[in-house]
């Protein structure tokens, strides 16, 4: 900024920052630090996955074949497409295209709902086939007990991922309201940018969950 005082008049600039650029850099860095803690949060779940798969490779092979690869691949494509619409929403915000920002945020939300809808179908299928760990669990011998470990990890990992998706939908709704109220412009679009970072992070988690849960061994 050539003149710090001129920038200070932007309504989105908070008094403890010198410029919008400094405010944006601080917000982006803060979001990335949060995402580092998220990497380690999911890292604990991946660690459990690695250990149990190392101890029970046969169980993993047998149990993974009860997941629907077609639905898993479809959901992967849906999430990747939602990451594209999210990136385009940020692009629209960067270029001051307010209608484009709102449109791409809506598309991102719709794709997120499609993902969660497919997840509901998959989860209810697990309940009908007695594949939910607990007293009603049924699985072919000799894995009738140990297969519960795979499905516990399946539900823990995909469940935490789905919870992040639900929170992401809330963030998208907040951004959509802001976009419709004309709160974002080419000079100030930080919330869209860091909301996008969160959405892409959740996409990355699924990029690893899909092959690790649905594509064990060969078919």
């Amino acid at each position: 900024m050539p003149n710090g005082h001129a920038a200070a008049h932007h309504e989105a600039l908070q008094h403890h920052f010198d410029s919008l650029q400094q405010q944006k850099d601080a917000s982006t860095f803060g979001m990335w630090v949060f995402l580092v803690t998220e990497v380690l949060f999911f890292g604990g779940l991946f660690m459990a996955y690695i250990l149990y798969r190392t101890w029970y490779p046969d169980v993993w092979l047998a149990a993974s074949h009860h997941l629907d690869v077609t639905l898993g691949a479809f959901n992967t494509a849906v999430l990747i497409l939602s990451s594209l619409t999210m990136a385009l929403a940020v692009h629209a915000a960067q270029t001051g295209n307010k209608n484009g920002t709102a449109l791409f945020l809506v598309l991102t939300m719709v794709l997120g709902v499609v993902f969660l809808g497919v997840k509901v179908v998959e989860y209810s299928d697990k309940f009908t086939h007695h594949l939910v760990p607990g007293p009603t669990f049924q699985f072919d011998a000799p894995y009738q007990r140990t297969a519960q470990i795979f499905f516990s990890i399946y539900f823990a990992m995909t469940g935490m991922h789905a919870l992040h998706m639900v929170i992401g939908e809330g963030i998208m709704l907040y951004l959509l309201v802001g976009a419709l109220k004309g709160r974002f412009s080419a000079a100030y679009y930080t919330p869209v940018e860091i909301g996008g970072l969160y959405w892409h992070f959740v996409d990355i988690i699924w990029i690893f969950l899909f092959p690790l849960l649905y594509l064990v061994g060969h078919h």
Partner: peptide, 19 residues
């Protein structure tokens, strides 16, 4: 191979979608 592909995909998302 599956993990190599997943890491490649994640790298593309981080570098370009996440700027």
């Amino acid at each position: 191979v599956a993990m190599g592909i997943a890491v490649t995909k994640a790298t593309l998302v981080v570098l370009f979608f996440m700027h």
